[in-house]
Computed example of a mutant assay.
Amino acid sequence: MSGLRTSRPEAGVVLLQMHRPEHGNALDVELKTALRDTLAEVAADDTARAVVLAGNEQVFTVGQDLAELHEALRRDPARAGDTVAEHYNPITRLLATMPKPVVAAVSGTCVGAGLGFALACDLQVWGEGTTLGTAFAKVGLTCDSGLSATLARSVGAARAARLVLLAETFPVEQGLEWGLAGDLVAPGEVLPTALALAGRLATGPTRSYAASKRLLADAGHRDLEASLAAEAAEQSVLGTTVDHLEAVGSFLARRRPVFTGA
């Protein structure tokens, strides 16, 4: 059992649920490998037009499985950290860069790499009362899963430094006041809300979403002229798509567009 459940609750939507409830959905090698490989498959699948990453109502994930890490350290301390390059980096990269929207459905507890995964997603739905935290300093480590970038981008560099160095947990409500984005709903409504959002995105202009993800991801590294050039290049390609032609035609015909992702 990999600890990952995959389903397609409606056309175009892929639901990935981390499922090791007896271990707090802790990320062991089987779950990390399954998540990495499945995300790669979904990223390349044109029939998948939106993705939801979820845990359960009690926990998104507590992060790395420390029992497994302890055993890896006992066997070979020099290789125990290889999981960052082998698993955490590819998972985070796939969530952030796949050419379709990804929604995180987060409820209960979300710490360590779990918080990194959630913030790597394009959109987030949070359950009321969810506990967030960086956790890494508590085990003598530093950030992985992109958290050094995504947390600073969300709440500011100074506050991110405090959250990382002190490793104090905080309620999601406080995080939203600090700058985290996303919808806040009752715990039992997290997954239905995320699936509804993904369903909406799955019927949208998929290639437009992919272009927007690329532009936004690189925005912090470009000056105005470079940004204008990148936007012009993306618009030039999108202007030839079936979805763009459909959108313009439907506007003129005063009807709702039907996007196919082409």
Rank of each mutant, 00 (worst) to 15 (best):
G24R: 06
T240N: 08
P257T: 03
D37L: 05
A229T: 14
E168R: 13
H244L: 11
S148D: 15
T240S: 12
T134V: 14
R8E: 06
D45I: 09
T150G: 06
G146L: 04
Y209G: 01
T193P: 03
D218G: 09
L163D: 02
Q124Y: 05
R79Q: 15
L216A: 15
R5M: 11
H19M: 04
P171H: 12
S236F: 09
V139Y: 14
P187N: 08
E246C: 03
R49F: 10
F117G: 03
L69R: 13
A43C: 09
A104P: 02
D144C: 07
A181T: 10
L228N: 10
A232Q: 14
A44K: 15
V42N: 03
V139F: 15
L147Q: 04
L151E: 00
L191V: 05
T169P: 15
L66Y: 07
A219H: 04
D144W: 04
K32D: 06
R162P: 00
R214P: 01
T130Q: 06
A233Y: 06
A11D: 13
A233Q: 11
Q17M: 10
T92S: 11
G108N: 13
H87A: 01
G156N: 03
Q235T: 12
E68T: 00
T260R: 14
Q64Y: 12
M18H: 00
R162G: 04
P90E: 06
S154K: 01
A230Y: 06
V84C: 08
F259L: 11
R49A: 10
R256I: 08
G114A: 05
D223S: 12
E225A: 15
G112K: 04
L228S: 12
T134Q: 08
L15F: 00
G24D: 04
A26H: 07
L35N: 03
K100N: 10
T131N: 06
T169A: 12
A105P: 11
S2G: 02
L31W: 00
W126L: 01
P21R: 07
T92D: 08
D243G: 04
A157R: 09
Q64S: 10
V106M: 01
A135M: 10
S7A: 15
S148M: 11
D76Y: 05
G156S: 09
A80M: 13
V84H: 08
A50N: 09
R8K: 12
V13R: 04
A40Q: 13
V13S: 01
R222D: 07
